[in-house]
Nucleic acid binder design. Structure first.
Lengths: 240, 240
DNA sequence: ACTTTTATTTCGCCG
DNA sequence: CGGCGAAGTAAAAGT
């Protein structure tokens, strides 16, 4: 089987292709670049994204994002890969037949960035000042009726019952509405609505105005900060 | 040879290693991340940078930049790669022995972004106003004695003999000194020193003051601008 | 060595 | 779809 047949078959199979060999590379699109003769790795993924990696440097020297049009061909002695996307062209000339390695990869896992919300909660329980000076959380979990779970429940410096909602990403309108539903349930349970704090890295503009009209406070809290606290409190050992 | 022996040998040889297999990935450092079971490609380059690529998405899901400490090991049944850099840790657990493919890649080529100096010259000859309004270059090449080749030679709007030196990067003191040597040679050849223009994207502070004392003019000219001119003049066809 | 700027940035969210 | 901001940004350029 020729390198072209192998590559085409792998691409239609949804495999990941790694090609290695001496090549010259041209890119022209938003910018333009040339890379003279040298040996590189070319990686073509199943979403038809393509990467050219030199033997050093963590970033690809050239690339094309997913949904590129990938074509294999030959001109004279050169083995050619063309990857086009809109008016952007990446062209790889292999001076000899490249080594072609095909990988069949299945990967459905979810990627979790930073601390999870669970770890943000752990950080707040270890260091409640992250939320507000003088805040004292209850350590046990608390349910808000059947609506859902309250992230952190406690008492602020003035002794007022306080609910804290944690978000890993920028809080949007929906997040604030969810918190408001919790507050209604808790208000019925306790006779009066508790104080509420939304702790998140940021809020969207619409969420911010909804917070204001709802009388909910906002505290800027990032997963990164939480992680640093966890590390300090738990020591520097990586619990992995 | 076990996968570890293979990988260690390849790394000490300065080869590029591609590993493929079912794995779990943990990262902890400036931030933290977890990635559950799935099949991925791991690429270790000879500068000891490491990339983890899922079968889709043009960006690595996890990585570590060059000069990381790369360690291979086994714990129970898991095959492990640890990549540490400062207080950042990337840990890859292969659930089965990974497929290991080793590539010996030599690559000394220079990466040229946008236009090369030759193409900048071509652009200036096609569109002399890039250097200065009313500038008229001679099309033929010109040597500056045995010191070197003059980039562009011509006559400015006042009819004054003018030498243009092109640089694709920020011009430094050395570049200005080289131009001054050309000017001396040309001055002897023509009886008086021609006017000189240094055209480059920018100049360093020291080079700028040397330009001033040398009476050499500076024109900001980027390879990008030249590329756009070339494209406009030559048409949109990719001449690759 | 440190700081600032750039990028074919990419990625996410908002309007 | 354009615009704005953040990124484990990384890498280059200037100081």
């Amino acid at each position: 089987m020729t390198w072209i047949e192998k590559a085409r078959k792998a691409l239609s199979n949804g495999s990941v292709i790694v090609l290695a060999g001496r090549c010259i590379i041209h890119y022209e699109g938003r910018a333009a670049s040339k890379l003279g003769e040298g040996e590189r790795l070319v990686i073509i993924k199943k979403d038809r994204s393509i990467l050219v990696h030199r033997p050093t440097g963590h970033e690809p020297v050239n690339w094309q994002p997913k949904k590129s049009k990938i074509e294999f061909g030959e001109e004279d002695d050169a083995k050619i890969i063309r990857a086009t996307r809109g008016n952007e062209l990446l062209k790889i000339y292999f001076l000899e037949e490249p080594e072609v390695v095909v990988f069949d990869l299945l990967d459905d896992a979810e990627f979790e960035m930073y601390a999870s919300e669970a770890e943000m909660k752990e950080a707040v329980l270890l260091e409640p000042n992250l939320v507000e000076d003088g805040f004292t959380p209850f350590q046990e979990e608390r349910r808000a009726g059947r609506v859902g779970r309250v992230d952190v429940f406690g008492i602020d410096r003035e002794g007022k019952l306080t609910v804290v909602e944690l978000k890993r990403k920028s809080a949007n309108e929906e997040d604030v509405n969810q918190l408001r539903r919790y507050l209604e349930v808790l208000g019925q349970e306790f006779g009066r609505k508790p104080r509420a704090i939304l702790a998140a890295p940021s809020v969207t503009r619409t969420a911010a105005s909804l917070l204001k009209t709802s009388g909910i406070d906002f505290k800027c809290l990032t997963p990164k900060t939480c992680m640093e606290v966890l590390r300090k409190k738990r020591g520097l050992d990586f619990h992995v």
